[in-house]
Nucleic acid binder design. Structure first.
Lengths: 105, 105
DNA sequence: CTTATATATAAGAAATTTTTTATATATGCT
DNA sequence: AGCATATATAAAAAATTTCTTATATATAAG
């Protein structure tokens, strides 16, 4: 019943298998920033950038960081950076995704 | 002008970001087989299996192998196996996809 | 008080991907 | 001759993903 691992992998790969989202990760790696600035940088309408980033965030590929420049007050600006993920894709690793935990060990 | 690398990566990730195709790679890793048998194993109509495998083949993720059991005659049966690929996805690697060759070195 | 910055979300349209259905061809078995 | 095996492709339907448009809210700058 270990279809979870492969399904989770498909989700993650789907998130990264998109030119906009891939570029977002690259841009946030170079310099963490908020959605508004990211949208401008990539010449995207804000709602689209928001949706794409939200997808990455929900899968944990990108995280919110608190690096507030504005010293006082509640932070109205949210900065994002890529998480520290590492996905390795080889035939063997892909095969492992479909193996049950018991027969994995 | 190095948008080639990221575009190629998106293509490859799209190919693997699908439950059917991911399972195909896993199945062919376990034991190389032809499309007809693969279709049966995965309970897919042949044309669908054919299309999915064709996608993997065109990207070089799967290759045709000549391991003919039928000694005589031209091989009417085509066997497939995964290629020896390795794709590593980290924020750094993704960032590199968008760097020009010159500034790469 | 208007503009720029900033977030969040919904609904619909557009584009792409996935799946089905149909067609054509060929071999081997019983 | 009919059935199972086997490949290949096209066209249309179905499903999903992507993108746009609209709305609502809030702060800061000029």
């Amino acid at each position: 019943m270990n279809e979870n691992k492969s399904r989770e992998m498909v989700k993650i790969l789907k998130a990264l298998a998109n030119p906009v989202r891939l570029k977002m990760v690259a841009s946030l790696y170079e310099k963490p920033k908020n959605v508004y600035v990211l949208a401008k940088e990539l010449s995207l309408p804000y709602p689209l950038a928001y949706l794409h980033l939200d997808g990455l965030k929900k899968l944990g590929l990108v995280k919110e960081i608190r690096e507030e420049k504005k010293v006082e007050g509640l932070p109205t600006v949210k900065y994002y950076a890529p998480s520290d993920f590492k996905i390795v894709l080889t035939p063997i690793e892909i095969h492992r995704l479909f193996k049950k935990k018991e027969e994995m060990k």
